[in-house]
Design a protein around this nucleic acid. Structure first.
Lengths: 341, 341
DNA sequence: CTCTGGCACTCTTCGAGTACAAGTGCTAAT
DNA sequence: ATTAGCACTTGTACTCGAAGAGTGCCAGAG
C-alpha cells in the first residue's frame, strides 16, 4: 500500500484529465505513465483516492476525474512551478519597454498575463491607503469651470471638474492651488475629512466659497481613489475554454464584471509559502465561480502599497503548473518595475 | 398582390422571430396577427419575400426566418423608434448626478446603455484631433523622476513619468513647466512634432537636456491621446443571448477585445436620417460579427470633437425598436451633458 | 499484506429505424 | 387575387440494440 504511488496516481489523473478533458481509466493510466503495476492495482488505489474524496467518477462505468479537493492536493503537494520559457521572458521584456504611465503599465501587464496563460487575467489597482498627496493643481477651463488635479505619491493622477462659486481669475486660481497644495502636501489619502476650515481661513474672504468647493472636490477624489478597481483582460479566453465550464459562462462573466465579488475574493486570499494564493472551485465561495479556479499573487508589496494582487481566473481543469509560474513571474516582474520606477 | 401586405408580413415575421426565437410558419402568422387572409395567401407572399432574399427557410419544412437583408428592410422601412419608458428616463437622470470626470462619465454611460438594452454596449473615446493643449504641468517625484501632466481643452488629463537628465530642483522644474505651458498653450494636439528647438532655446543651457526629454514626453502623450479607445460593458449579456449566436461567442468576444476592428467599423458607419447608424450581419464586413448587428449613434458632435460614436452590439435577432431608441436617447443625453459641462 | 488476472456487471454512446408534426408548394376552384 | 386541399419533404423525438469502456470483486500468487 505504497502511499507515494497514490500521489503518483493522483498526479497522473490530474495531468491526463487536464490534457485530454476526458475521464481517465485505469488502463490508460498505466499505459501513458510508466507505472510498473497492473491496472487492477491502480484500481485499488483509485478506490482509496475516491474514498478520500480526491477523485470521482461521473458515471459508474467511466474513468475518474479530480474533485476540487483532488486539485487542491495536487497543487499543494505535487505541482512544481514550471520555469518560464524563453519566449515568455522575452514577452515580459518588451512589456518593460512600452511602460508608460501607471495605469497603462497595469493594463499591459494584465493583457500579457492573459496571453501567456490563455485565460482571463485580472489585476487589482493597488489600495493606496498609504499613498500621500504630492501635489494639487487647478486649471481653469472656462470662467466658472475648473479642473482639480490631485497627484499622489504612487504616481497616480486623478482629476475632477468643478463649478466655482464666482468667476475667478487665473491669479486667484493659482493662489488657491498653492494653498491647497502646500496645506495638503504629504497628507495621507486616508486622513479624511480634510481640514476645510483651515483651508478656507488661509485665503481672502472672497475666495472662500470657491475654496470650500475645491476642498470638497479634492475630498471626493481621495474617496474614490481609495476604492479598489479591477482591470481585466482575455475574457475571450473564457469562451474558448467554454467546454470545461459547461453552459455557465454567462454567470461567470457577470461575476467578473461585478468587480466587488472578485475584489473581496482577492483580498481574502492568503499567500502560501510559494507566494501564491489559489482558490479552487467551491473554495471561491461563490456559486457562479464553482467551476473556476483563481490563481493570484501579491505584487508591489514592498512599496508600501500592500495587498494588491494580480492573477488569473480559469476553469478548475487548468494547467496549474504553467499558470502558477506565469502568475508568480508576472507579479515579481511587475513588483520590480514598480519599485524601480 | 397587395404590396403593403408583404411588408406587413415581413414585419410580422421579424417580430415573431425576435420574440419566439423560432422559425415562423404561415399558420402561426395569421393567428398571432390579425391578417384577414388565409395561410395559403401568406405562403404566396412569403414565396415572394424569399425570392427577394428577405427571408429564408432553414429547412424545407420549417417556417421562415429573416435574412440580414430582411432585417435591413425592416429597420429601414418599418421600425418606429420606440419612446423611452419612465424607468429608463429615470435611470438616465441618476446618471447625471453621478457625473464625475470625463472618463467616469463615459464609463457610466456605457454601463447604463448595456443595462438598458441587455446587450454589449460600446463607446468610443472622442477623437480629440481638434482638442488643444490647455496646460502642462510637471511634478517632481524623486531627484531624477518627474511626472509630466498634459491637460487638454476637452478636459482629459494624461500623464507620463520621465527620468530627467540631471537632478533638478523644484524651482527649475517649475520654470520648465511654465515654458512648456506657455509655449504650447492652445496648440492643437495634432500639430506634431513639437518645436523642440524653440523650447530648449527658451531655458538656460543647463536645463536643456532635461527640456528635450520633457518635450519628448509631451509628444508621446499627445500621440497616444490621438489614438481612439473603446470602452465596453455588458459582455455578460453576450453569453445570455448565446443561443442566438451559435457556439461562436468566442470569436465575437475576441473581435470586441480587438478594439481596432470595432473602431474602424464605428468610424466607417454613416448616420441615416434618424441619426442612427446600423450594420446588420454581413454588413459589418467582419466574419466573426456575421451573426451580430451594431446599432450606433454619434454623440457630442457639436462640441468640435466630431465623429465619436456609442452603440450596442447584439445578435441580428434583436429588438431593433427598443435598441435604436435606447442608443439614440443615450447619445442625445450624453451630448447634452457634455455640452453643458 | 500486496499485487495480479479474470470475469461479471453497469452504464454511456452511437446508429438505425420509425412514427410524428410542421410546414411548404402546387393545383384547381372561386 | 384568394382559397382549400393534398402530396411531399424534412427535422425531431423516441425506442431498441449492440458496442465499448471501465469498474468492483474474488481468488490466487509472491
Amino acid at each position: 500500500m505504497s502511499d507515494t504511488r497514490r500521489l503518483q496516481v493522483l498526479r497522473a489523473i490530474v495531468e491526463d484529465y487536464v490534457h485530454t478533458r476526458e475521464p481517465v481509466g485505469s488502463r490508460a493510466l498505466v499505459e501513458r505513465h510508466d507505472l510498473e503495476v497492473s491496472p487492477a492495482t491502480i484500481r485499488n488505489d483509485m478506490a482509496h483516492l475516491e474514498e478520500e474524496g480526491l477523485i470521482a467518477a461521473p458515471h459508474t462505468s467511466a474513468g475518474r476525474i479530480p474533485t476540487d479537493l483532488g486539485y487542491r492536493r495536487f497543487v499543494d503537494k505535487i505541482t512544481e512551478v514550471r520555469p518560464l520559457t524563453a519566449a515568455e521572458r522575452r514577452a515580459m521584456d518588451t512589456l518593460l519597454e512600452t511602460a508608460d504611465d501607471h495605469d497603462a503599465m497595469l493594463e499591459h501587464t494584465v493583457r500579457l498575463l492573459a496571453m501567456l496563460t490563455n485565460q482571463v487575467a485580472v489585476i487589482q489597482h493597488p489600495q493606496r491607503s498609504t499613498a500621500k498627496i504630492r501635489h494639487v493643481d487647478i486649471v481653469s477651463m472656462s470662467s466658472h469651470k475648473a479642473l482639480v488635479i490631485v497627484i499622489l505619491s504612487s504616481g497616480k493622477v486623478d482629476q475632477r471638474m468643478v463649478t466655482l462659486a464666482d468667476a475667478i481669475g487665473d491669479d486667484s486660481l493659482h493662489r488657491l492651488a498653492q494653498v491647497l497644495s502646500s496645506e495638503l502636501h504629504q497628507r495621507s489619502i486616508s486622513a479624511l475629512p480634510l481640514p476645510t476650515d483651515t483651508l478656507t481661513s488661509r485665503v481672502e474672504p472672497v475666495l472662500r466659497p470657491s475654496m470650500a468647493i475645491l476642498a470638497q472636490a479634492v475630498e471626493t477624489i481621495l474617496e474614490s481613489s481609495r476604492v479598489d478597481r479591477i482591470i481585466m483582460a482575455g475574457t475571450a479566453n473564457l469562451a474558448r475554454s467554454g467546454r470545461d465550464l459547461g453552459p455557465s459562462i454567462g454567470p461567470i462573466l457577470e461575476a467578473l464584471e461585478e468587480q466587488v465579488v472578485l475584489l473581496r475574493l482577492l483580498t481574502e486570499m492568503e499567500q502560501d509559502r510559494r507566494g501564491l494564493s489559489i482558490r479552487i472551485g467551491h473554495e471561491t465561495s461563490h456559486d457562479s465561480l464553482i467551476e473556476t479556479a483563481v490563481v493570484a499573487a501579491e505584487y508591489g508589496s514592498h512599496t508600501g502599497a500592500e495587498g494588491a494582487k494580480l492573477g488569473v481566473v480559469g476553469p478548475t481543469r487548468m494547467d496549474y503548473g504553467s499558470t502558477m509560474s506565469a502568475v508568480r513571474a508576472m507579479a515579481r516582474y511587475l513588483s520590480r518595475i514598480l519599485s524601480e520606477g
